[in-house]
């Protein structure tokens, strides 16, 4: 069996006076959608931020494709793409310019830039608004720009943090389809959500966090266990 794409080992993190993560461990593999579940404040976003090097671990360790987040943060960031619920884009740049900017900063060579950005625009179906200024785009279109900038450097690990929370039904479905497609391409997809229905449909394996600790982990079927669905199992675990 190949080593896990993302390994989190006994991770602890305090923000201000709050102990947000209390020794969590998990592993996410290539070619799977891994669900990071839990109520608001459980520590999902903090976990993702430590994995992508935005926050440093207080204790424990995090490795992405063998690179430690503390000793090789730039190598980690080269291999990770993150999509969050905050679909902030540069309003005075076009959709294409937004994606190009991130491609350049992610180290896409100048010679490949145009082709790589064009491929992302094709893949996400953005041709009709690619040259439009971002401040004139709809939420769904902005979310596509956010996805485009996260995947333009072709990362092996993709993380989605509550990606559908600000989107309508159609845009949400496109995100879900994109995650499934990425799994099919052999990417490791980490999906953080509190919408358990989405998780049940998409995830191969899940970890449930509650108050900074792991309360359940395993395949979706294992965690659901004897319960009717993941929501029931979740409620029994956290209440």
């Amino acid at each position: 069996m190949s080593p896990a794409a993302v390994t989190v080992d006994r991770l602890e993190k305090t923000l201000g006076k709050n102990k947000v993560l209390r020794g969590i461990s998990l592993e996410a593999n290539a070619g799977e959608i891994f669900g990071l579940l839990g109520p608001n404040g459980a520590g999902k976003t903090t976990t993702l931020r430590v994995i992508c090097t935005l926050l440093a671990p207080e204790s424990g360790s995090v490795k992405v494709l063998g690179f430690d987040t503390l000793s090789a943060p730039e190598e980690v960031r080269r291999r990770v793409g993150v999509v969050t619920a905050d679909i902030g884009v540069y309003p005075r740049l076009s959709a294409r310019e937004n994606i190009t900017y991130f491609a350049q900063l992610s180290g896409v060579p100048d010679g490949e830039l145009k082709q790589r950005v064009g491929a992302v625009i094709d893949r996400l179906g953005m041709e009709s608004f690619a040259n439009q200024r971002a401040d004139s785009l709809s939420s769904g279109q902005k979310q596509k720009v956010a996805i485009g900038r996260a995947i333009v450097h072709d990362p092996e690990v993709l993380m989605f943090d509550e990606p559908t929370s600000n989107l309508d039904v159609l845009a949400s479905r496109e995100i879900r389809e994109f995650m499934v497609e990425s799994r099919g391409r052999g990417r490791c997809v980490i999906f953080s959500t509190h919408v358990l229905h989405d998780a049940e449909r998409l995830c191969d394996r899940v970890t449930i966090l509650h108050e900074g600790s792991v309360v359940a982990t395993g395949s979706t079927a294992e965690v659901r266990g004897r319960h009717r669905d993941l929501e029931d199992a979740f409620l029994e675990l956290v209440l």
Partner: peptide, 18 residues
């Protein structure tokens, strides 16, 4: 304010150069 900072800091570009 427009929530682009996190995405910017996620790029491998060193922050000092940014």
């Amino acid at each position: 304010e427009r929530k682009t900072l996190e995405s910017l800091l996620l790029t491998p570009a060193p922050r000092s150069r940014i």
